[in-house]
């Protein structure tokens, strides 16, 4: 456990350091950029104005001094003040991360449900339904979420009026964005699970279960599934991260609150403290996701409990 925690801290430190180094190599003078962004147009700042800003944010200090101060603040949970929003970064992120987590988790659950239903019902049966299911997974895995979202919005919200156009953070408003993210992922998870499922179906213990008189669906659910989901479970940690970045685009389409809008605005405005904050929050999500995957593994595969 201690090693795991150490690993997590290392990932956070590496992310923080990487973001710090990258911003040093970005073109342009940071103080000028802040002044221009705040004004919304190009300014001709005087030396006096630039000096005031450089002093405030410590841009005149050596890179090492800036780095030490930055890591020190970070260790105390102080992510600084956003350059453009003038609010503490932790507050901005705390206010926006909830809807993003709800969206990504709902999408992950949905993706699993869709892929499992298709896999259990269709794999290893040589019929039209099975081939259609495989085709469905190939097609959905290739669909870009942005496109799905726009089609959903135009057809189901604007034309048919079944769902709200403006995705508020209500349950109903979460349905379309969650499906938008879940559909491509379900195709992806489904393809992996299906391969494994087909392999396990041929294993001797499956045959022996059948000879004990367990029905086909029972065999599939009770014996095969547990084995077949392992590769996809492993990938779910990665998938959660992918959903998180997919949410950045989808939140704009459905006008949802969330970390995506914050990141876009922060990147456009070169709001370094805020970009760093969002990066760290994403890294933290990854760490938690992988931890959850480990725990899930132990439940699915009892052999790991003693290990």
């Amino acid at each position: 456990m201690a090693r795991r925690l150490g690993g997590a801290v290392f990932v956070l430190w590496a992310t923080a350091t990487f973001t710090f180094v990258v911003q040093l190599f970005m073109p342009g003078d940071r103080a000028t950029m802040i002044i221009n962004t705040q004004a919304g147009n190009l300014q001709s700042p005087s030396a006096e104005q630039l000096a005031a800003l450089n002093a405030r944010y410590g841009f005149d200090d050596s890179y090492l001094a800036q780095y030490v101060r930055y890591i020190g603040d970070l260790a105390q949970g102080d992510l600084g003040i956003s350059y453009n929003q003038h609010q503490p970064v932790t507050e901005i992120i705390a206010a926006q991360i909830g809807p993003t987590i709800v969206l990504t988790l709902s999408a992950l659950v949905l993706a699993w449900l869709i892929s499992l239903v298709v896999t259990v019902l269709a794999t290893g049966r040589d019929n039209a339904w099975s081939r259609a299911a495989t085709g469905f997974q190939i097609v959905t895995a290739a669909l870009p979420p942005y496109w799905i979202g726009t089609i959903f919005l135009v057809v189901l919200s604007v034309q048919l009026g079944i769902f709200p156009v403006e995705g508020s953070n209500t349950l109903v408003g979460t349905i379309l964005p969650a499906f938008t993210l879940a559909i491509p992922l379900s195709g992806f998870l489904g393809q992996i699970t299906q391969d494994e499922f087909a392999r396990v179906l041929d294993q001797p213990f499956v045959t022996s279960s059948r000879t004990r008189g367990i029905g086909d669906l029972g065999v599939r659910l009770k014996h095969v599934l547990r084995h077949a989901v392992l590769p996809a479970v492993t990938l779910s940690g990665w998938a959660l991260g992918a959903l998180f970045s997919g949410a950045v685009l989808i939140e704009v389409v459905f006008s949802r609150q969330g970390i995506g809008g914050v990141l876009v605005q922060a990147t456009n405005g070169r709001d370094i403290p805020l970009v760093t904050g969002v990066m760290l929050a994403s890294a933290a999500m990854y760490i938690v996701a992988n931890l959850l995957v480990d725990i899930a593994y132990r439940f699915i595969d009892p052999r790991l409990k003693s290990a």
């Binding site: 919005l153 135009v154 919200s157 604007v158 709200p164 156009v165 403006e166 389409v253 006008s255 809008g261």
Partner: peptide, 19 residues
């Protein structure tokens, strides 16, 4: 005062009378 950055969403919100 809603921020609807996506063109489809903004136009759709008028058509569906949400705006």
């Amino acid at each position: 005062w809603k921020f609807l950055k996506d063109n489809t969403a903004r136009w759709g919100s008028l058509k569906s009378a949400e705006s």
